[in-house]
Design a protein around this nucleic acid. Structure first.
Length: 951
RNA sequence: GGACGAUUAGCUCAGUUGGGAGAGCAUCGCCCUUACAAGGCGAGGGUCACUGGUUCGAGCCCAGUAUCGUCCA
């Protein structure tokens, strides 16, 4: 074996061999265990967040597989409508200077498919490098034939159940991407802005109470005044309530609009008068409906002012309630330019009362980054209220459990106030809505055009045109757990693997995806008793991986990390190229380059997949974001090397030796019995940790056992046996070495698949394990066995450790070379001490590097010595020629000071009547014991100090 | 404005029936000891954000304050 662990040499070959042998497929035996992956964007690439979640999923899958479950990790990718379309649009713009309209719909979609074929493999390659044990033969894509069929089926059935409708509604319109988006895709940001106060003249000579012929409305959107169809005041407002029912003559358009009384107008806020623009504001839209105010649309798809307005009644039907003419000077003007123009027009007319600074919330599109415009358009909606009920109940009843639990509150809060879901998108890339219109505009929904014709008796002469829109990507994602398993067919897979067991995902898509999955799945899937089936039993919500400074990783910030760079390493030059390569803005590129140079001055070293996975497990504490820390990764890379070298030691001492595989007398040492017990404890801890999704605790237990118990103590303790023991002792120790290591590798395997497999291949032939399949991943997982705990061995070995540590401490403090063998005298030793000493002399001599150990009689004083105390026994190291008197006095004083503090505190506690009368007996006994120990130790040290001081 | 979370060693973070403040990294000292210098051995370092309460006993429970973060409106 190499002296240093070199992951790059083993990883890919191992993965291919696992994949070829079909180890990732369900075995068909045992209970089903299934995880559906949150499908990444097909044209994207994995970031650290994916690596994090996938490590957790793979760990669970490997753990369950080794527990004998019939495991399936269902994978696939998402077509990601807007995101993918944007990528390809940008690509053709950059490479061919074309827009999608130059291509036309069909050609453009072909282009995207082409791009998907080209780049779609990227994600799969990355996922393989992470070691994910995925059955690739079942990989799905949200737009493949089967899934498209499922989407159609769901749409049609929902429509038939009256859970989908079409209507002219106010939607969040993205003026850059020219599509509607759902509430969730809108990001509200706080901005500093202005509040304009406009004078609106009263019609028909009406005057206010204080004799004015106008009222003042306050608005943050002056340009929308062209679409005003009313002014609202609070019906309780004494200043204005007399004006309710009177009219305003709207400036610039000379439109006569009513003053209405509505609670929406807040007496305290602004001027108390609010202009109502039902076609361009969600609140105003509600007010308009309540008071039957027409809706006047004044904006086009680019959010520029129209030449002629569109007037609708509250049902969304065209109406002639108002003249459609708009002032020509604003026609074609962008909304923000129009704002300026209209404000100055009001000023010119003497109608601008004042401008106030104002903090407001502005909606932005999460993809385009432009201000979202509420716009009246025809869209398709899912009526979610009926679907939400069972979905809420499933979580309330514990059929679905969130981990950590606090996310359930977030889920409930949103679900209980859920709005209808706008599912149509004015894009080309996606599932085209299965609806057709005849020439009169009548809509027919069906699986295909033929279906529609047949069902509605439309003959060939009727011209039908399919709806141009596609469905929100999340519509197909919502079907993910069951559509990937073959729905709407009643498949074996559905029977075996649905509901799935765990969903591992980020909190940021609980609303987008998790909630909608629950609703859709429960509506379409019933078990044999007709009970609604949930998509998954548990939702494990991970935190976000942030960068070193705690900032969110994003492409525009340039702080995104490719997990493969952590695995394989990358030079600074390549990293810079990767991060700033095709940036649109050179200025941003400069900034990113600077940051990158600072963070990774030497680029990134290779760490290997196992180290990355172990790190991700170790930081996976729940309910909290994670700041990425390279130091952690380095530390765990070192850990993999430690495992490698420990194994190297084991193999060097066991291969081609008798390890007791074929019988023969075995005499287990104290260390052997101890490490077996320690390992069992670790097995127990790891099981509990995995079963409760505490991957951090599992990693910690594995790390602690491997490094601090197995390597630091056990391997050292095997040396005296292997070098000097008799045949039966050596055989026993070799046997213990290989069996514990072999089991430890299995225990670690779910987190670190590669290194464990590599070493396991060499270790397992040395053990008496009967292996029918030649891979660690197909073996059984270690189970806790209480019978292997040897309490006496544990306490005896603790005594050995204290002894060794005491000597090492004196060595360290007194600067005595580790290579210098020391004579030791023991004073005040008990029968137990003597027994332990006699049984473990070789251990003590080897680990503490002792020249001799001599037990003093009760009346013997011994030489002037540095002293350590173990229980009631003193360990003496003669000072002659080695230790300075003053130094030893100082060391003793320090030790005594610490003890005195302990003694004082404990005494205080025990002399407190309340404590003694109320605390449990066990606690009191413990305190008493602690006090006795400290006092006796203190006395011993004091005596020793006196002796030395007298020299 | 509402809800949730965070505040523990220089840094990143554990600490789940309330009963001796922990890990990794960093720091300091010694050591190339036949698995490992990506290492070994030893050491130092904390008014557990603040205030009050419950309790014999609070990092942990309760109330409030401050700062930061996230979601919702």
């Amino acid at each position: 074996m190499e002296k240093t662990f070199n992951p790059s040499q083993i990883e890919q070959a191992l993965y291919s061999s696992w994949e070829e042998k079909g180890y990732f497929s369900p075995t068909g035996e045992g209970d089903g265990y299934c995880i559906a992956i949150p499908p990444p964007n097909v044209t994207g690439s994995l970031h650290m967040g994916h690596a994090f979640q996938q490590t957790i999923m793979d760990t669970l899958i490997r753990y369950q597989r080794m527990q004998g479950k019939n495991t399936l990790w269902q994978t696939g990718t998402d077509h990601a409508g807007i995101a993918t379309q944007m990528v390809v649009e940008r690509k053709i713009a950059a490479e061919e200077d074309k827009t999608r309209h130059d291509y036309g719909r069909d050609a453009f979609i072909d282009k995207i498919w082409e791009w998907k074929e080209e780049s779609g493999g990227n994600i799969g390659e990355q996922m393989r490098r992470l070691g994910n044990s995925i059955d690739w033969s079942r990989e799905r894509f949200t737009m493949d034939d089967g899934m498209s069929e499922a989407v159609q089926e769901v749409f049609v059935r929902l429509f038939e159940d009256d859970l989908i409708y079409r209507g002219k509604r106010l939607v969040n319109w993205d003026p850059k991407l020219h599509t509607a988006i759902s509430d969730l895709e809108v990001e509200n940001k706080d901005k500093k802005g202005h509040m304009w106060h406009f004078r609106y003249p009263l019609a028909d000579g009406v005057k206010t109470q204080d004799g004015k012929d106008y009222i003042v409305v306050a608005t943050t959107r002056p340009e929308t005044m062209l679409g005003d169809t009313g002014v609202a005041v609070n019906p309780e407002d004494p200043r204005y309530k007399d004006l309710i029912g009177k009219n305003i003559l709207l400036p610039l358009v000379n439109r006569l609009i009513p003053i209405v009384g509505d609670d929406h107008a807040d007496i305290e806020k602004g001027t108390g008068c609010v202009k109502i623009t039902p076609a361009h504001d969600f609140n105003d839209n509600e007010v308009g409906k309540r008071h039957n105010l027409p809706m006047i649309n004044i904006l086009d798809k680019d959010a520029a002012i129209l030449a002629d307005a569109e007037v609708y009644n509250t049902n969304g039907e065209l109406s002639d309630d108002y003249d459609t003419t708009l002032p020509s000077e604003y026609a074609g003007l962008d909304r923000f330019k129009a704002r300026k123009a209209i404000v100055s027009k009001f000023e010119e007319l003497g109608l601008l009362e004042e401008i106030k600074d104002h903090d407001l919330t502005v909606p932005y599109g999460d993809r385009s980054g432009v201000v979202i415009e509420p716009l009246l358009t025809d869209q398709w909606y899912v009526r979610v209220e009926k679907l939400a009920g069972p979905a809420i109940k499933a979580v309330e009843d514990g059929e679905i459990e969130f981990v950590p639990k606090q996310y359930e509150n977030m889920y409930f809060a949103w679900m209980r106030d859920i709005q209808d879901w706008c599912i149509s998108r004015q894009l080309w890339w996606g599932h085209r809505i299965p609806a057709w219109y005849d020439e009169s505009g009548k809509v027919y929904v069906g699986r295909t055009e033929d279906d529609v014709r047949n069902n509605h008796n439309l003959d060939a002469s009727v011209v039908l045109k399919q709806d141009n829109d596609v469905l929100d990507t999340w519509f197909s994602s919502a079907l993910w757990t069951f559509s990937t398993l073959g729905w709407p067919e009643k498949t074996e897979d559905l029977k075996n693997f649905h509901p799935t067991d765990v969903l591992v995902t980020g909190f940021d898509i609980i609303f987008f995806w998790v909630a909608r999955m629950i609703m859709m799945t429960m509506h379409f899937n019933k078990d044999e008793n007709g009970k609604a089936q949930v998509p998954f039993k548990k939702v494990y919500v991970t935190g976000l991986i942030r960068d070193e400074n705690g900032d969110k990783m994003s492409k525009s910030k340039g702080n995104v990390v490719d997990p493969l760079d952590m695995i394989d390493g990358i030079s600074l030059e390549d990293l810079l190229e990767k991060r700033t390569g095709n940036m649109m803005q050179p200025k941003l590129a400069e900034k990113i380059a600077k940051l990158t140079r600072k963070e990774y001055p030497e680029g990134i070293e290779a760490h290997g997949t196992d180290a990355l996975r172990f790190t991700l497990s170790a930081v996976a504490s729940t309910g909290r974001d994670i700041s990425w820390d390279m130091k952690r990764l380095e530390g765990y890379r070192n850990f993999t090397n430690k495992i490698w070298n420990a194994s190297r030691y084991v193999l060097m001492n066991t291969e081609e030796h008798d390890c007791g595989k074929d019988g023969g007398e075995m005499q287990l040492s104290l260390a052997d019995r101890w490490i077996i017990g320690q390992f069992q404890q670790t097995v127990k801890t790891v099981h509990t940790a995995f079963d409760t999704f505490r991957f951090d605790l599992a990693a910690q237990a594995l790390y602690e056992f491997t490094w601090n118990q197995f390597c630091d103590w056990y391997l050292e303790l095997t040396k005296p046996v292997l070098f000097k023991g008799n045949e039966a002792e050596q055989r026993a120790t070799r046997h213990t070495l290989v069996t514990v290591l072999e089991a430890l590798l299995r225990l670690m395997h779910p987190i670190m698949p590669y290194i464990t497999e590599t070493i396991w291949q060499r270790v397992v032939p040395l053990t008496s394990q009967q292996v029918s399949i030649d891979s660690i991943m197909m073996q059984t997982y270690p189970q806790f066995d209480e019978n292997q705990l040897d309490e006496l061995a544990i306490s005896d070995l603790e005594w050995v450790k204290s002894f060794v540590i005491a000597i090492r401490n004196i060595r360290g403090e007194m600067d005595i070379a580790p290579s210098k063998p020391l004579p030791v005298f023991l004073k005040g030793s008990s029968v137990d001490d003597i027994r332990r000493l006699e049984n473990n002399k070789s251990f003590l001599s080897a680990l503490a590097k002792l020249e001799s150990i001599e037990v003093l009689h009760a009346d013997e004083q011994g030489p002037a010595s540095a002293t350590a105390v173990i229980g009631d026994m003193s360990v003496l190291i003669p000072m002659a020629g080695l230790i300075d008197v003053d130094a030893e006095l100082a060391r003793l004083s320090k030790a005594m000071e610490k003890l005195e503090k302990d003694v004082q505190r404990t005494r205080g506690k025990l002399s407190n009547e309340n404590f003694v009368s109320k605390a449990p007996d066990a606690v009191i006994a413990k305190e008493q014991e602690k006090l006795a120990d400290a006092e006796s130790m203190l006395a011993t040290l004091a005596e020793q100090k006196q002796t030395i001081a007298n020299l």
